[in-house]
Design a protein around this nucleic acid. Structure first.
Lengths: 198, 198
DNA sequence: TTCATTACTTAACATACATCAATTTTTCTG
DNA sequence: CAGAAAAATTGATGTATGTTAAGTAATGAA
């Protein structure tokens, strides 16, 4: 599991090679933890001292609005990192994290990246890259929410997370897309019809 | 203008003091540039080598969808940074940047933060903080787009950018909110009525 | 296996917002 | 300043998606 995490980091820094010694030194205190299905890993208002690198399983981050409605911000299957940037500044978190499937994750202390970059300076660009990626990911999502129809959103979701379509309950997908489960059901039916006719 | 930028950075690192020498060393090559109203600073597909710290004026970032419709991603008035994270990875940018008002901005080379942190290690947390801030900003926006009505979005906009309401044309605000100019006009009318009755 | 719960589907109806089109107001240009 | 262009408003109408409610299918616990 820690080895999987090493591979993940290695990919992110691309051409630079991370030696075993270097990785050992930065990964020394890392802990791996298991979570049951439906277990909540973080509550709104918590101030967790770590994020999660998902090795196996599936996590989700979601917020609950004033009307008690859930809004899913992100899914994190294998080899994704999920972490609440609010915690980094010692502000209370603004979302929940829970396990959609039984999950095994590496706990990444909030200062992990900074510490790692301090010890192994070549990791610095990687840290920036990770943050840039999540910014670009969100930018794309905002674009979609600004313009796309329910059907377009769903097609986009399938493309983005091809193997999640079966692992995530439909009502959660609907929530992620910003539509109701009923609407998603209709969209799926229409898509099926189109395929059938074609 | 460079001094204003210094103040901005100083605020972000909070308690740590940035000495004049330190600042001089990191700001050595920085350039300030003026842009006319409506001037386009970045086209989709460009690979700019810098972002912008706005000292005076007002910039916006927007994308254009397949149907030729603009979608505004961000406004950047005084003391905001606007930059395309795509450029950082040498990938073509995905949005336009233009000047809503005549603007003066510091050009921030893409590697500015990394270089600065290399020279003055105490800037490292600041760099992370800036990125975290923009992630949280976008998270909030996604939340809003997932759940809020046209009226709620507009009220939220007013709260977020109180002094932009008059500086930005309404159709741009509408675009930012993901609604049509006509809808925004009606929302405003209703809000005015509510106030009048109250 | 059976019962209870939760998820998904379907249909009828409601509504917020989009679209289209005409008018007024504001801004720009010579 | 006059005329043109762009922005904002207003009204009539359309439509995608939400809401409510009922029924069916899948899942989980005893």
């Amino acid at each position: 599991m820690i080895h999987q995490f090493k591979k993940y980091l290695q990919e992110k820094i691309e051409k630079i090679q991370l030696t075993d010694e270097q990785f050992e030194s930065i990964s020394a205190g890392l802990k791996v933890k298991k979570f049951e299905k439906n277990e909540i890993l973080q509550y709104t208002g918590d101030n967790l001292k770590h994020g999660f690198f998902v090795g196996k399983g599936l996590l989700r981050a979601y917020s609950v609005d004033a009307k008690g409605k859930e809004h899913i911000l992100q899914f994190a299957p294998e080899n994704w990192i999920i972490s609440d940037r609010n915690n980094m500044n010692n502000e209370p978190s603004i979302f929940f994290i829970d396990a959609i499937e039984a999950t095994e994750a590496v706990l990444m202390p909030n200062n992990f990246m900074e510490e790692a970059a301090r010890q192994v300076p070549c990791l610095h660009p990687m840290q920036i890259k990770l943050l840039n990626n999540s910014i670009r990911f969100m930018q794309k999502r905002i674009n979609m929410l600004l313009s796309a129809t329910a059907e377009e959103r769903y097609l986009d979701f399938i493309k983005l997370y091809p193997n999640l379509t079966l692992r995530v309950p439909q009502w959660m997908i609907a929530s992620y897309l910003g539509i109701t489960p009923e609407s998603l059901s209709r969209v799926r039916k229409e898509l099926a019809n189109k395929h059938f006719k074609a």
